[in-house]
């Protein structure tokens, strides 16, 4: 079955078993590294991507479900030349240890910042409640998101 969707602002088309998890299509067919396999059970958040701007778990979404929709991965959020404020903030705060969960943290934070540009700590805790970090980088991740939020509001004013 052919699936057509927008991936990181580019129209793409893929002939694939429609039941294939979106995560596998992104990693194996489009060779993207952003979303990670962590549990395959929508429990840890490492595989998060933005679907129409909302953070979703790509490990449990069949690729057919994104037909006609917009998917954004960490790669689409920004790159070295044109980084997203969250990517910069994660570097500035050194907000990771192994970094395997960082994709999920940044994607879910991006979704949060798109609806709330001045999140308090409790808003961040809530937005990342189902994102697991095993290294204990939580306080740095929160700081990075707050830093990114601050730079966003500064840009606006």
């Amino acid at each position: 079955m052919t699936i057509n969707f927008k991936l990181n602002d580019k129209a793409v088309s893929l002939d694939i078993d429609p039941k294939t998890p979106l995560l596998e299509a992104l990693r194996n067919d489009f060779e993207l590294n952003g979303p990670k396999f962590g549990c395959g059970l929508a429990q840890c958040g490492a595989c998060s991507v933005l679907l129409e701007g909302e953070a979703v778990r790509s490990c449990v979404i069949p690729v057919a479900a994104v037909n006609g929709l917009n998917v954004t991965t960490l790669e689409g959020l920004g790159n070295q030349q044109n980084p997203h404020v969250l990517q910069l903030a994660f570097i500035e705060e050194q907000a990771m240890q192994c970094g395997y969960c960082s994709n999920g943290m940044i994607i879910n934070a991006a979704a949060l910042l798109s609806r709330n540009q001045t999140p308090e700590k409790k808003d961040i805790d809530k937005a990342l409640a189902a994102n697991l970090c095993r290294c204990g980088a939580h306080p740095r991740i929160v700081r990075a998101i707050q830093r990114a939020a601050k730079s966003l509001t500064k840009d606006v004013t």
Partner: peptide, 21 residues
């Protein structure tokens, strides 16, 4: 000194075993 590996990780460059194809 900032960690050498962090930029590649936030920009989703090849960083992990899973990224080896």
């Amino acid at each position: 000194v900032p960690r050498l590996d962090i930029p590649d990780k936030v920009f989703a460059k090849t960083s992990y075993l899973a990224d080896q194809r």
